[in-house]
Design a binder for these strands. Structure first.
Lengths: 182, 182
DNA sequence: GTCTATATCAAGATAGAC
DNA sequence: GTCTATCTTGATATAGAC
């Protein structure tokens, strides 16, 4: 059942958002899906294999989003709004899966680390591409700094929001928009 | 030996920065310290007790820092620089212990959660206090939004920096300084 | 492709000797 | 205060039946 495989990846991604890669177990997954642990092991022999599949999925989604943004005619503000509204949907009450995997970085097998690196870099690159279109008068270095600031801000805000339960991301983004006008 | 207790908290804090609360074990701690697991259990009967001690330490340090900043005559820029340079020292190649604990939030016992909440809130409050002194012309709401943005940016940047290994925090902060002038 | 059963190992935790 | 020894539980993983 190829569908079961997808279902496992979906669930693993959800639990990584909530608890992190280290904290989830095949027991968690199997109980929620109503199957046995052995059944999960059939689809993903080792936990590492599942982690690789999840990060490949995240990377693929991000690449699709990158293409969508590149080929769109949206304004910079609209593109940024697209990015962080997508973040909210992806996180769905937890934290960003990328932040979660970054936190667990030291415990990740090499293959998963490489994917997390690639994902992190692509997020920065997407923002650099968004910014350079309309901020042509600013240097490449400044555009890179801005991309770092905006992505960092979005990701940090989501983590505080889960713990403190305020509209931290939305409010922080209002300030970021002002950065682009200055 | 009261010193051993402190030593365990120090080490736990270091490992939380590197791997996170969930990922560390009494076995890790005991091997590094050259004692037995049982010895760690003597000082902290349950892992939760150790987590509480660590977060109380983090909170205490932050409260001290808050007093220092409040009673200083530094400029806003200097205070912010103090904050994020302190972050770099605290993280020491890992991620911020607060970010680490935020990521593991779902897996934390209630008592530790409360401490993480308090710490997260105090970080925001410190920034609000820093900003309101010189940004009197801006409303309380805007000051809060700015505090959210700056703290989020610092914390997010540290996570990307560990994975991508660039000067992401410093560069992001350069852009944040511009926010304060606009 | 999914199951039962089981192996193996590590983690959190406790009892009791020294 | 630290140790040895041990317990329990849960996690990763495998073998082999259906």
């Amino acid at each position: 059942m190829e569908n079961r495989k997808t279902q496992i990846i979906d669930l693993a991604l959800k639990l990584i958002r909530e608890k992190g890669y280290v904290a989830i177990s095949y027991d968690d997954l199997s109980k929620i899906l109503g199957v046995t642990k052995a059944s999960i092991h059939y689809h993903f022999e080792k936990k590492e294999d599942l982690g690789v599949a999840v990060t490949e999925r995240v990377l693929q989604n991000l690449q699709d989003f990158s293409s969508f943004i590149t080929n769109s005619n949206l304004t910079v503000e609209e593109k940024i709004k697209n990015f962080y509204e997508r973040q909210i949907v992806l996180c769905d009450g937890g934290i960003c899966p990328v932040s979660s995997l970054q936190s667990d970085y030291e415990s990740l097998p090499e293959k998963i680390r490489q994917n997390v690196e690639e994902i992190s870099q692509l997020e920065i690159t997407i923002f650099k591409n968004i910014l350079k279109v309309t901020l042509e008068n600013r240097g490449a270095k400044e555009i890179e700094s801005l991309a770092f600031a905006i992505v960092s801000c979005i990701k940090g805000a989501i983590q505080y929001e889960r713990v403190l339960g305020k509209q931290i991301l939305t409010q922080a983004m209002n300030e970021i928009y002002r950065l682009l006008k200055g």
